[in-house]
Design a protein around this nucleic acid. Structure first.
Length: 494
RNA sequence: CGGGGUGUAGCGCAGCCCGGUUAGCGCGCCAGCUUCGGGAGUUGGAAGUCCCGGGUUCGAAUCCCGGUACCCCGACCA
């Protein structure tokens, strides 16, 4: 394996290839036999579980409950909201039959033509329609509101081009679907949840994000407003990492969901939906990793501390691992996840490289010299700096180092991100920055979809968002020269 | 869906152009000995429907036709 692991291509050569190799070699995921789908391996799934658990706790903290809705959506449900159909029609997997039979003309099986469904079923690309069809039965009065549900599920979108984690045909996600009495309440909910995502991205993933509104052109199909968190990858491309939508009464109208309000009158309910997916895994990998492999934030690392014994012979190994087990017990008591790797079929140098590839935040190595001196060697993954420290007070030291790594990788990503937001005022500058520097470009835009589309065609850059904290400032659109009231963020993106 | 590339042992590849003994190499795996503070050395061993189907030929990993899967680039999208 030694040589093979070294073959991680450098980021500078081909970022996409590097990312793909890293995902596969670090044991996170691989392509499945089914076109565009992925197999998430145990180590990758352990990271997803960490993310899922942290998010789930935050959803519950904000008053949400989990539920589960069907995988299959009758075609007729799907077509009730016009914008929604248009947004998803091109990428739906469709179930047309319910039975196979032995091939009468030879080997294998064929679809039984007698088993054609009356109405085709769509494999959910998102669940608004089936959920709103259900909510119709749940809601009659203002006393039934709000409904604050989330579901953890898989969805299928038959994308033309796929990339591990970033865009797969099937992906895992959570989708929140809420129903409210008033427009204001629904909008507050949408804002609350995008801020939950921001907190999660920054405090757990260590990935700084910009919160803002999508332009009308980039909005979710069927939404009145889409809020987004936009992250920046190390190659200067943006990644939409989570969205929260104010759906207005569109789905309530499409599925006829009315409630009796406090004045005794029938009214359509107001809705939101919000989601993040396994794409966050891609964000995590691309935001922090280096040419030695993954760099995981301690809060999401399946293994936070790995202990590698250095020894000659079985006796020394036993002695060193006994001491390590003792230290590990102390760490575990503090809630730190530790692995003592006492394998004797690979050498310690191999283990070092392996855990670096997997992004384990802290490595502790101990050999006979340390045993004699009462020390250990400790290395942090983010800086790769090694230090020999006393075994005395080691648990507290490691606790501190983990916190420090969590902070440091966020700060590093934040500094990089901030250095990659470039204000420009002319079209020439705009094109130049996109081509030569990348990252976000802060520029005036006249607010029209025509201009946005023209810019996209000319440069491949899209409006990532209109930041929530944008300050109003008079200017002229970099493309059309028409007046503009504020800057928006453009970038090339995944 | 268009352009380019790849498919040969668990993994990474050579061989193919120019058909010809028993299909090789590195890593990994199994056994032994020596090693062990940054991806060990050595000796022996196991492991292959050469992506699938058809064709040409005395003979096909190699040539021809068809299919299929994956990767990169583009259009589309979270």
């Amino acid at each position: 394996m030694a040589k093979e692991l070294k073959e991680l291509t450098s980021r500078e050569e081909n970022y996409s290839q590097w990312y793909n190799d890293l995902v596969i070699k670090a044991g996170l995921a691989e392509n499945s036999a089914v076109r565009g789908c992925m197999v998430i391996k145990p180590y990758g799934y352990a990271i997803w579980e960490k993310m899922r658990d942290a998010l789930d706790a935050m959803f519950k903290e904000t008053g949400h409950q989990n539920a589960y809705f069907p995988l299959f959506i009758p075609k007729s449900f799907f077509s009730r909201e016009a914008d929604h159909v248009e947004g998803f029609a091109k990428e739906c997997a469709v179930v047309t039959h319910y039975r196979l039979k032995n091939n009468p003309e030879g080997d294998g099986v064929v679809v039984d033509p007698d088993a054609k469904l009356e109405e085709e079923l769509i494999v959910r690309p998102t669940s608004e329609t089936i959920i709103w069809n259900t909510y119709k039965n749940w809601i009659q009065s203002y006393r039934d509101l709000p409904i604050l549900c989330n579901q953890w599920a898989n969805v299928v979108r038959w994308e033309m081009r796929t990339r591990l984690f970033l865009r797969t045909a099937e992906f895992l996600w959570q989708e929140g679907h809420t129903a409210h009495e008033t427009s204001e309440e629904a909008q507050e909910e949408a804002l609350r949840m995008i801020n939950v995502y921001k907190t999660f991205a920054e405090e757990y993933m260590g990935v700084p994000v910009i919160v803002g509104h999508k332009s009308p052109n980039e909005r979710f199909a069927g939404a009145l407003d889409t809020l987004t968190i936009e992250a920046l990858m190390q190659d200067g491309k943006a990644l939409q990492s989570g969205t929260s939508h104010f759906l207005g009464q569109n789905f309530a109208k499409a599925f006829d969901v009315k409630y009796v309000n406090r004045e005794g009158k029938l009214e359509y309910v107001w809705a939101t939906s919000w989601g993040v997916s396994t794409r966050l895994m891609g964000a995590l990998i691309m935001a922090h990793s280096d040419n030695n492999g993954l760099v995981l934030p301690p809060k999401l690392a399946p293994i936070q501390v790995v202990m590698v014994p250095i020894y000659k012979g079985a006796e020394e190994l036993a002695a060193v691992t006994a001491k390590m087990d003792e230290i590990a017990a102390g760490l575990k008591a503090k809630g730190i996840s530790v692995k003592v790797d006492a394998r004797d079929n690979v050498r310690s140098g191999f283990k070092f490289a392996e855990y670096e590839l997997k992004g384990v935040p802290v490595r502790v190595a101990m050999g006979p010299r340390d045993m004699a001196n009462g020390t250990v060697e400790i290395m942090r993954r983010d800086t790769l700096v090694k230090e020999t420290v006393s075994q005395e007070g080691l648990v507290e030291l490691i606790e501190g180092v983990l916190k420090d790594i969590q902070k440091a990788i966020f700060q590093k990503a934040l500094d990089f991100r901030n250095s990659m937001i470039t204000p420009v005022d002319t079209w020439e500058e705009f094109v130049k920055v996109l081509d030569e520097k990348g990252g976000f470009v802060s520029a005036h835009w006249d607010g029209t979809t025509d201009t946005e589309v023209a810019i996209k065609e000319a440069t491949k850059a899209t409006i990532r968002c209109i930041p929530l904290d944008v300050v109003d400032e008079d200017g002229v659109c970099i493309y059309s020269g028409k007046p503009s009231k504020r800057r928006v963020l453009f970038a090339r993106s995944y």
